[in-house]
Design a binder for these strands. Sequence first.
DNA 1: CTTAAATACTTTTTT
DNA 2: AGTATTTAAG
Length: 716
Amino acid sequence: MNLSDLNPNQLEAVKATGGPILIFAGAGSGKTRVLTHKIAYLIEEIGLPPENILAVTFTNKAAQEMSERVTSLVQINTSKMSIGTFHSICAGILRQNIHHLGYTNSFTIYDSSDSKTLVKNIIKDMNLDPKQFDASSYQYMISSKKNMLMSPQDVAESAEGYIDEKLADIYINYQSELEKNNALDFDDLLILPIKLFNEHPNILDYYRQKYKYILVDEYQDTNKPQFQFINLLSEVHRDIFVVGDDDQSIYGWRGADVRNILDFSEQYPDSKVIKLEQNYRSTGNILDAAYSVVSKNESRADKKLWTENAKGSKIKLVECFDDRQEANKVLEMIFDSSFPKSEIVVLYRTNAQSRVIEDALRKNAVPYQIIGGVKFYERKEIKDALAYLRIVTNPDDGLSFNRVVNFPPRGIGKTSIDKINDYLNKNNLGYLDLNIEDLSIGPKQKKELGDFLSFIKKLNGNKDRPAIEILLDIINEIDLKNYYLNQPNVESHERWKNVEELITSIEEYSEQNKDKNLSDFLEEVSLLTDIDRHNTDYESITLMTIHSAKGLEYSLVFIVGLEEGLFPITSYSSLENDIDEERRLFYVGSTRAMKQLVLSYAKKRMKYGYEMILSSKSRFLDEIPLELLDIDGGNSNIFASNRMASNDSRQKKNLNINYQTSSTIKVGDNVHHKVFGNGRVVQISGFGDTQQISIRFVGNVTKKLMKKYANLSKID
DNA sequence: CTTAAATACTTTTTT
DNA sequence: AGTATTTAAG
């Protein structure tokens, strides 16, 4: 095979076999090329059958691309290779073997919002105060425990104090509820294979035999369960090949452990380490700027990327007075640039920042694709439709049953649903075993429930039909189209359109995967991310978070919102050491750029639609040497005047004016109220005597008052 | 039980 | 601002 397009280090990586191998692959150093050539080399030169190869990638899309590229490199049929994300590989193993663990192979995969609903229900059932026991934080804590491979019993045994004990109780109930529903959350997908391997050595042996060579991409973002999984499989043959870059570790918050890559040589003393430090992607200036920020981190493997590429243009730094101006400047620069739209990306720290940018693009008819945010499969109408499909495949899925038992409304209200659930819990039954006559609900409710159940039973008896047929049966039976179209509001028409899109996607799936059934489709849907649906052929600007941009590259990259508090982000609980991960995130974002990098920040930014946040520019900008920057002083008049206002003398003068006319209280001011105390103005609405003012007082209480009577005094 | 209106809550990143 | 949840009216 042809390996002539590889540099010496890449070639060494491809040819190295026998024993554990770690590739430190910097951004843009051609690691995808190494991985694909490596797999091709294993097949063609070493003679390893494709079915003995396991390659783990970070997204489904990366898996698909890798599989295509390998296929184009070798002459052999490669369809039996196992390439996928940790979650999809694990789901596949569990489909075959989960009956050993007390589930059935028609299990449902719960996404985070399903898990959160489950936690919320449990907190309610335990009669705990939902204010004190916030479902989101408990969901997060349970997930953390799972990532530490702690069972509910482990947590119970190590619990110290009331909160810990309650967490253990919630976790115990959560896990048993999942089991009862024959459902797995995202963490279970990774943990249960380990349990399976530990409890059934013969199954572990089978997979050790099967996966004779294991490759892992983005190794710096693996967590403890993922490490265990790989480690168990490769313990005997030791043919493991991992690729990663500690500078690009950005998933610490969800349990990823950089130590996995940093300690690789200690964990595998017989291992070999190869570094890829030549960057082929970016200009010299972009690399220097990115490096100047990430090199401020103390605990990192020492290495520096270099490139033969030209220095290129300087990094553009754009200062704006608010987020709307920032969006407009991005828009202008897009118009001025000569790059095709598919080569341009706008990156941000939080999904909420997309809206202003979107507005500017939409108003100017610039086509764009947005990745993330409210994901397609998380929309209410889609989840409702999927819940029907779920209860057909998995008749134990109580959560989905509750979701649709009265959707569309069929007269079974809250009271009736509570009675149904009480009855089921007391008698330890699934909803398909319901004996309607035993329930003390109204006659109309009994009839409706009976009809609903017999419909589900009918579908359930014939669930191996093509998924699309089942979906269409459901939509017809519940008359979903008319339900949405008969409502006068625009959103419900939009909802029906989304349902139509779901129909199309199932049609395509059934067409392309004739051997796959409904539960395969549901599995794919649960594990699909927005980035997997991203279409790069389409001529449009892309908008996404920096996290989603991992592994991608664009000619022109904008990173917006470089402000202290936003990027690096701060929250009440975050500690200083999170700054390192923010820095790496900046590094990941800026190294996506091939030709031109634009950084911007705004002095004022809206939050929650009305609250004004004032902030200063990100410390990261100060860490980039001035000679790499081309600073945009702004060209609009408003901006110019605003800029002058930041002069010391001018600013003082403005402040003086404010003090003199203290009756002109404006948004952002701190004020005192005789009854409510001190607070900050978040909104002013209306005119003259009817003008109202919203103030967020100490203790996070917001009150809306008539400005005329509020009798506020301004404070410093 | 259903619907509309009022209120509360959200925003860090995602498999 | 947008969504979810609670309350009030029908």
